[in-house]
Amino acid sequence: MIPLLGISTQALFGQLLLGLINGAFYAMLSLGLAVIFGMLNIVNFAHGALYMVGAFVAWFLLNTFHIGYWPALVLAPVGVALLGMALERTMMKRLAGLDHIYGLLLTFGLALIIQGVFQNLFGASGQPYPPPDLLKGGFNLGFMYLPAYRAWVVVFSLAVCLFTWFMIEKTRLGAILRACTENPELTRAFGLNVPRLITLTYGFGVGLAALAGVLAAPIYQVRPLMGADFIIVVFAVVVIGGMGSILGAIGAGFLLGLVEGLTKVFYPQAANVVVFVIMVAVLLVKPAGLFGKKI
């Protein structure tokens, strides 16, 4: 292979591909956050905890009921969405119209409680979750060995992201949802049940988190703090993309995964902070984020 700036192209392609895989997770998680913020105006700090719950539901289904990966990919998000809707109905609803900080504190507290309960039940180290048989093995790409499962993660999450964007921006349902947030009073006057739509949106957002959790289960350990490790970076991704912007969240997610991968090639020590450096730069130059509307 030809070396490029002292780095072999082999290493470069490999790290870029890995960056893309990480980016897929960033995109899925930040997409859920963006949907919730865009529609409910809540900064959902419980997102990481619900992502973890999604992974645990999949683990629990497998170990207790012997229900495998493919059904779990549907069941876990639905289960977590129901849990999320219950939380929205009983708690978050009461904070509607108050300052953002209240929602942030509530969801942050919820995240701590959920993580604490799981840590108490399962301990800190992870539980094993095997990838489905269909996706075992991998492809030798020449410059690296790509596990089939990771390839699936990229393709699947890209499809989910585009589907979500299409639903919200291009369909009638999406238009109604957007109307709910733009002008709830007027939407209600048209005979639409606004609180129910908001509850459903929250359920959908956290369902996305749980879906990412199930996708992550065979790659990372299924462990109580798996979401806590991720959530800060994901928030940075949302801020860079522009709070509440669907396309921004998706684009920034994949983009930052790639940038992180590149950093690992050229200056590995900075890989953990590069996302935050970019966040600071973006906030200074374009405070609303790359794709955000002007504040």
């Binding site: 290493a11 490999g14 790290q15 990771r150 590995p268």
Partner: peptide
Amino acid sequence: DVMAPLNNADFSSQLLQAQS
């Protein structure tokens, strides 16, 4: 060698370097 921070969730990048 390649350093990874304590409590690192994803080792794929380090493993790739080790492989090459």
